[in-house]
């Protein structure tokens, strides 16, 4: 069970939250002109990082607000929580074989 610190409500259990996958994926600026390849990249492809992943969560059963989390996907340790639109914090890059 993860204990996630919602920036607006404080620490709550993971069952109160829903997951939004990778953060900072930019929506295509010119969707009319986008090739199928570029659409596939945007819609389907992802880093699926083993290590520190910047991801989005929403406090579905609380304030219902979205925010970003930096989490280690091997140890599941939450390294930082920051608001939508904020720049990601500088974190030590953790790599696993």
């Amino acid at each position: 069970m993860l204990l996630i610190s919602c920036p607006y409500c404080g620490p709550r259990e993971e069952t109160e939250f829903s997951y939004g996958h990778e953060a900072h994926v930019e929506r295509p600026k010119n969707p009319d002109k986008l090739s199928d390849q570029a659409w596939a990249e945007y819609l389907f492809m992802n880093d699926n990082t083993k290590g520190v992943l910047l991801e989005r969560w929403v406090h579905s059963h609380g304030c219902r607000r979205w925010f970003n989390v930096a989490r280690d996907t091997v140890s599941y340790q939450i390294l930082a929580v920051y608001e939508m639109g904020a720049k990601p914090p500088r974190l030590k890059k953790q790599t696993y074989v």
């Binding site: 069970m1 993860l2 259990e13 993971e14 069952t15 829903s18 997951y19 996958h21 699926n48 990082t49 083993k50 992943l53 991801e55 989490r71 996907t73 091997v74 140890s75 599941y76 696993y96």
Partner: peptide, 13 residues
């Protein structure tokens, strides 16, 4: 589990 994880363990809920 609903989130990405490589830890080969799941959560209790």
């Amino acid at each position: 589990d609903k989130y990405i994880g490589y830890g080969q363990r799941g959560s209790l809920p």
